[in-house]
Design a protein around this nucleic acid. Structure first.
Lengths: 253, 253
DNA sequence: ATGTGTGAATCGGTTCACAGCC
DNA sequence: GGCTGTGAACCGATTCACACAT
C-alpha cells in the first residue's frame, strides 16, 4: 500500500500547527473580526508570521494580499483539511486513573472526538459505569470498533500490556492510536501512532533545570523582565512526542 | 544571546530522546546484560542506530569500539545529565479531572518526580484530601514553592486561567512548567515550558485518518489523492514500519 | 500602502559511510 | 571481525526578503 501522490503534501510540522491555528481562529470567530493578518494569527498561535504564511500557503492561496485571511473561510478550509467535518469517536482502553480522567474530561467531545467506548481487561471493571458509558471487555474490541466506525484508539494501560493492546486495536481495525503508556510500541505502516509520555516531558524539563542551576544565584547584572517574552511554543513533531522548544537561552552575559 | 556556556551543547532533539534511552536501559539493568550495542539500544528505543551513536556521543565517548556501551555506566551518566540524581517535586495546579488523575498516578513518584503539592483556586476544594496531600490555595503558591525548593509546575486548569496560573508559578519561583491546558501561554526566557495538548494530538491523528479515507465528497472541487501515510510526528523513525513481533499485521474487518 | 505568497538562504537534525580502536 | 565515533552529505523545516496583488 504505497502510493505516492502528494497532491499537496503538507509538511508534518505544518500539520502539527494547524490545530493551533484552528483554535486561535475559533477564539475570534463569529465576532467582529472578519479578516486576520498572518501577524496577528501568529501572535495568537505563538509562532512567527512567516511560518503562518508558509503554513497556510500549503492549504492553498486563501489570503488576500494587502488584506489578510477571511476568518470564516479559513476556519472552514482548515476544519475540512483536518477531517473535523465529522466526529471521530474515541475508544479508551484502560480505565485506570488516567483513562477515567480522560473519559470524564469534556474537552474531547466538544472538539469533535466523543468518547464512544471504554474498554478494560480487568473483569472486575467490566460492566462498571463511567459517565454515560459502561466499561466493556477488551475482548469485545472488534465489535465495539465495528459499531463505532472509524475511530481513534487511546491507550491508557500500564506499559506492560500496551503493545498487546495496540495490536488488538489494530486487529480490530483502528488506524489511529494515541498512546499514553510509557513504553515504545510499534504499529504497521498504515496505522498512525502518536504518543504522550508524561515522564519523558518531566525528564526533559529536568534536564534544562539541571543545567540552569548547577549552582545557584543567577547573578545577572540586568534582571530580565518578565511577561511577554515568548518562550516559543512547543510544536514540532520530529521523532518524538510532542513538541519541544523551551528552554532558554542561557545566561545572557 | 548565545554564550558559549555549555561546554557541550546537546541538541534539543537529542535531549528529548535521552529519557527514552534511559527507560530502555532500565529495562535491562541489573541483569545479565553488561554492555549493549547501539543497534540493540536503537531497537529498544524505536530509533535507528546511527542516531543512538550520535546522541550518545554528545554525552561523551562512553562506548567501547568493537564492544558497545556499558549499561551501568551509561545509566549513571545519563541520569546525571538529565538531573535525575535528585528528586524534583511537582506542584499540580488545578485539581479537576486531570489534576486528580495525575495526583493519583504513581508513575511520577517512581521516576523521581514526587507530587509535592496540589493547588487549586476553588475555595471549595481547598482543604480536601487527595491521597496523602491536602489541596492548598493558589494564593499559597509562593509558600508552597519555597517549602519544596526547585520544582516543576504542572498546569491542569481550564484554558481560561492557564496564563494567570503560569504567571503565578513563575512569580513563585518555578522555572519549569508543563502545561496541559489547551491554550498558548508565554513565559519569560529563563523559564522552560512544555505542553501536552490532547486535543491537538487527536486532531493530528484526524488529519492523517482523513487523508487515508476521504469519505464524503469535498464541497470544493479538489482532486483527491491517496497518499502513503506516515503519521505522527511522535516517535517513529522512517524505518520503523511494520510491527515486527506483533500480531496484527493484517486487519480483519 | 499593506500584507500575502514564495523562491532562496539558512539552520537543525538525520543519515551515510568509513576511519579508528577493540 | 565488530562496533563506536564522527565528518560529510543530505533533508526537512524555518526564516528572510521581496515581488506582486489589492
Amino acid at each position: 500500500m504505497k502510493a505516492l501522490r502528494p497532491r499537496r503534501r503538507i509538511p508534518e510540522a505544518t500539520v502539527a500547527r494547524l490545530p493551533v491555528y484552528l483554535r486561535s481562529l475559533l477564539e475570534l470567530a463569529g465576532v467582529d473580526t472578519v479578516t486576520i493578518s498572518s501577524e496577528r494569527l501568529a501572535e495568537m498561535a505563538g509562532v512567527n508570521a512567516a511560518k503562518v504564511r508558509k503554513d497556510l500557503s500549503y492549504l492553498g492561496s486563501y489570503g488576500t494580499r494587502g488584506v489578510g485571511y477571511d476568518v470564516e473561510f479559513l476556519l472552514f478550509q482548515m476544519s475540512r483539511e483536518l477531517g473535523l467535518t465529522q466526529a471521530w469517536p474515541v475508544v479508551i482502553v484502560g480505565v485506570g486513573n488516567l483513562g477515567h480522567a480522560l473519559a470524564n474530561y469534556g474537552g474531547f467531545g466538544e472538539r469533535g472526538f466523543p468518547v464512544g467506548a471504554l474498554v478494560d481487561a480487568d473483569p472486575a471493571k467490566v460492566g462498571e459505569r463511567v459517565g454515560e458509558l459502561v466499561i466493556r471487555s477488551v475482548e469485545e474490541l472488534p465489535t465495539v470498533v465495528a459499531e463505532l466506525g472509524p475511530s481513534i484508539g487511546v491507550v491508557a494501560t500500564p506499559a506492560s500490556v500496551a503493545q498487546e493492546v495496540v495490536d488488538q486495536l489494530v486487529a480490530a481495525g483502528v488506524r489511529s492510536i494515541l498512546n499514553f503508556a510509557p513504553t515504545m510500541v510499534t504499529v504497521p505502516a498504515d496505522v498512525s501512532l502518536r504518543k504522550v509520555d508524561l515522564a519523558v516531558e518531566l525528564q526533559i524539563l529536568s534536564f534544562y533545570q539541571q543545567r540552569r542551576s548547577p549552582l545557584v544565584a543567577p547573578a545577572v547584572p540586568a534582571p530580565i523582565d518578565a511577561e511577554e517574552v515568548a518562550a516559543g511554543g512547543n510544536e514540532r513533531s520530529p521523532g518524538m512526542v510532542a513538541a519541544p522548544l523551551s528552554v532558554a537561552t542561557d545566561a545572557p552575559s
